[in-house]
Nucleic acid binder design. Structure first.
Length: 480
RNA sequence: CGAGGUGUAGCGCAGUUUGGUAGCGCGUUUGGUUCGGGACCAAAAGGUCGCAGGUUCAAAUCCUGUCACCUCGACCA
């Protein structure tokens, strides 16, 4: 009745199936993750969005520490001469570098790049820090922001400035560098699947798609709900591509001067975009419990009635003491129904409703964000029950995403099949290894090669594009 | 950067064709009644119409430029 007319004016999310891009933008804004700023292409990340990033940082940083890495901080500004030292690197990044040309009122004699990535400055420092084989390896990472002058931007997916982490390591041997490259790719895979609940395809990038200046690039590729690929993390083996021009040399055990072998690997706030587009639904965000700033929201019902607010608070306190991230929504200016919708929009995995009837029965109504399943839970068992349910949600989100991705990945053997498949998913195909075929597929279907899986069991004998003998099994998809 | 679209109160919009000094709903504030899926009544506050020029007695409205956002391409994480 009156309620209905009320609803018409409530801000609504564009249906996901109708316009996926608009849906994404709506969710990002309505869930209060970020806001636009007066600075072109640069967003303000609001507390709820930054809260997700902090959890991502915490989990990933722990994984870096476990694998022997340490954090450092490098300058944000890089002298132009350093950027010019590695030819492919300059060529790749030059179009999107922002420059500082003046200090105070004085023009600079050499302009300074605002870092688009920090290989050059790391190598410059490594040249000073590495003398002997005993100094190696150096396993450093930094959490910072970088700037790339993007022409078109989208919140979290492509912004001019973005927060990320970049690991840079140097090693005594090519083998160690390769091991490191693969180790960090595995860290990313594990993180995506077990923390973000985002299934990924791991593999090696083609020559065309590899990082500017790298010898080999590996990536983890996720699939969004519109079937497009999102490159979510990259791990590069540089060999001595940078250490030679930057003269990162060491005296080895055998008395010979050698160039160190280098790697780098990075992931960014793009992960937040991946979360939204992997798990979100028509009601908004759906966060995996491991990265949810609020894992459980406790909503008192009829909070003015005797004992309700106290009862709800007691439950919230117990859950907090048990180490969970809990929010007691004790606002008195919105109704419970309003709160339900708002916290669903914000993707909180679990909601506990506590009203007079619940307190009478010594229970709470437990509602899952992923299934909307509503179960009464005895207050005596609430901590164990909530913990178990959060685990179940984490698992369920991964399984749903995994099933979706698998259903949208198909082996293709002809260009017709490839065209159809990249319209809403990944095409797994054989490829001759030639750049020309990648170019043709890009040109005709707008799809790019994503990566080449490590399991190279062939599915056909000839290239999907040119029919020459196939050399590689590779994924194609349209990408963000 | 190419093609298209949109900028009017915190949010969603009307008004622009045919210039006349800005309106609706939600939200906000205050008081009261409510409270198990987006409550109701009453009163109030809130806008240099994206920005900069121009035309005009008069511009949200017409002209020029510019900026931001959205969609589709090209490019990248």
């Amino acid at each position: 009745m009156a309620k209905k007319s009320q609803q018409e004016f409530v801000q609504h999310i564009t249906p996901r199936d109708e316009d996926f891009s608009q849906w994404y933008t709506d969710v990002v804004r309505l869930a209060d993750l970020m806001d636009y700023t007066p600075v072109r292409g640069c967003m303000a990340i609001k507390p709820y969005g930054y809260g997700i990033w902090e959890l991502i940082q915490k989990e990933m940083d722990a994984a870096f520490k476990r694998t022997g890495h340490q954090n450092v901080s490098m300058p944000m500004l890089i002298p132009e001469s350093l950027l010019l030292k590695e030819a492919d690197h300059v060529e790749g990044f030059a179009p999107e570098v922002a420059w500082v040309t003046q200090g105070g009122t004085e023009p600079l004699t050499e302009r300074l790049a605002i870092r688009p990535t920090s290989e050059t400055i790391f190598c410059t420092m490594y040249a000073k820090w590495v003398q002997s084989w005993r100094d190696l390896p150096l396993l450093y990472n930094q959490w910072c922001s970088v700037m790339r002058w993007e022409k078109t931007t989208r919140p979290f997916l492509r912004t001019s400035e973005f927060l990320w982490q970049e690991g840079h390591t140097v090693h005594a041997t090519a083998e160690e560098a390769q091991e490191e490259t693969m180790r960090m790719l595995e860290v990313y895979r594990d993180f995506c699947e077990n923390v973000l609940a985002v299934p990924v395809y791991c593999g090696q990038k083609s020559e065309k798609e590899k990082f500017a200046g790298a010898q080999a690039t590996y990536s983890v590729e996720a699939m969004m709900q519109d079937g497009k690929a999102l490159q979510s993390g990259t791990s590069h083996n540089f060999g001595t591509n940078f250490t030679e021009p930057f003269e990162v040399k060491f005296l080895d055990k055998d008395g010979a001067q050698k160039y160190a072998y280098e790697t780098s690997w990075g992931t960014s706030t793009r992960f937040i975009g991946a979360l939204i587009m992997t798990h979100g639904d028509e009601r908004g965000l759906k966060l995996p419990p491991k990265v949810a700033p609020v894992q459980v929201v406790v909503v008192p019902v009829a909070a003015h009635k005797e004992g309700v607010l106290e009862g709800a608070k007691a439950v919230a306190d117990r859950l907090t003491e048990a180490g969970l991230r809990v929010k007691l929504d004790d606002r008195d200016n919105v109704t419970p129904g309003w709160k339900f919708n708002e916290w669903e929009l914000k993707g909180v995995p679990l909601r506990l409703e506590i009203g007079p009837r619940d307190l009478e029965n010594r229970q709470a109504m437990c509602v899952r964000r992923d299934t909307f399943e509503k179960t009464p839970v005895p207050l005596d068992e609430i901590v164990e029950s909530v913990k178990a349910t959060l685990c179940a949600i984490q698992k369920n989100l991964y399984e749903i995403a995994r099933a979706f991705r698998d259903a949208r990945t198909k082996d293709v053997f002809t260009m017709e099949e490839l065209e159809e498949q990249v319209n809403g998913g990944y095409a797994r195909a054989m490829w001759c290894g030639e750049r020309a075929c990648e170019d043709e597929i890009k040109e005709r279907f707008g799809a790019t090669s994503r990566n080449m899986p490590f399991d190279q069991t062939p599915i056909a004998e000839t290239c999907v594009c040119c029919s020459k003998p196939a050399k590689k099994l590779i994924y194609f998809a349209k990408a963000y």
